[in-house]
Nucleic acid binder design. Sequence first.
DNA 1: CGAGTATGAATGAAGG
DNA 2: CCTTCATTCATACTCG
Lengths: 196, 196
Amino acid sequence: MMTEEQMEVLRQQIAAYAIISDQLVQMHKAFSAQHTHSGMRQGSLYYDPWIASSGQKMNIRQRWSPTTEQLQILERIFEEDNGTPNNQRLKEITTELAQHGKISDSNVYNWFQNRRARLRRKQSVPEPQKPESETGKEVQSLKEKKMRPESTLSYENSAQRSKTIHLQQSPEISTEMLRLNSRSNEANPHFRQILI
Amino acid sequence: MMTEEQMEVLRQQIAAYAIISDQLVQMHKAFSAQHTHSGMRQGSLYYDPWIASSGQKMNIRQRWSPTTEQLQILERIFEEDNGTPNNQRLKEITTELAQHGKISDSNVYNWFQNRRARLRRKQSVPEPQKPESETGKEVQSLKEKKMRPESTLSYENSAQRSKTIHLQQSPEISTEMLRLNSRSNEANPHFRQILI
DNA sequence: CGAGTATGAATGAAGG
DNA sequence: CCTTCATTCATACTCG
């Protein structure tokens, strides 16, 4: 297992990489923004058909996807608040995120819902330390799904620690990297539905 | 302390970011190496001028792949149980499969998830209509897709293929990055999964 | 070797 | 909250 110290290091490392890649994506977006005209780019990276001339077309993309900024903010809030936002809070968050792209509160709601659920799922499997010693011992029956080891969390509260990493990364990154792909390329978080 | 699962999550995150960052660096190098290139082919997805000629490289990002035995077992179970394994069952299966190779329950979980999904898709679309206009950016108004019919037509039209990058990362990271993660090198598992 | 396909994994959303 | 689905991404694998 790891020491708390090592954990901390890992966290920092992640944060560092996260920031870097985020900047990368930012650059990508900036770059693509100033090139929306020239040449055809056969819808690969991001096609933006939603600005379709015919009024309000914007279809095709049906599922919301957070922009990088939004994701960042969401993650931050998730850590800070460390819990389910109530309606009030939810709307605040939505409002804030709306500045960075189209979004609705149900998106935010779902996001938190999923975020929590998946975190829980991951951490709810205390894996035995010796992988191959014997297979039979792995009892671990959580079958009593009624009982959720809610109190067993450790990841979250350790993450609550200050995340100030203060790093500034290299400003000079070529435009080449802009081709870097990632989900975050979805500079266009378009959605369609509203639900409720 | 952390569970093995949590560790796994961390590893995944690190690996993910590490890859992106690596690519970033690689691209940067490639770019600065021959920057005289003026005609930007912004449309084209990518190309990979950075062939890692270096011999050794850490194998980041290896994805699990079932061995033959595992696959057989999985298929058998899939038929027999004919449904979604609950957590209990999932662990049993994982345990069994672990005898034939490295595996984690999330692998199993995903496998069933995908298996079901793909089976479903196959069934619901017996005859896929082929996209005749290859370049046509057909609108394909699926507005009615809003409601979820049991027969979700979703054929694999090859448009919107991935904007892949396909590159192998190299072990070394730019000096910028070294600054960032310098103190964690020893503890750093750059691995998403360390199987094989 | 490079394009196309199979498939493991991630994630937004729906329903209960 | 929990489970499951649909969809998409990324990668390994295969074939021309």
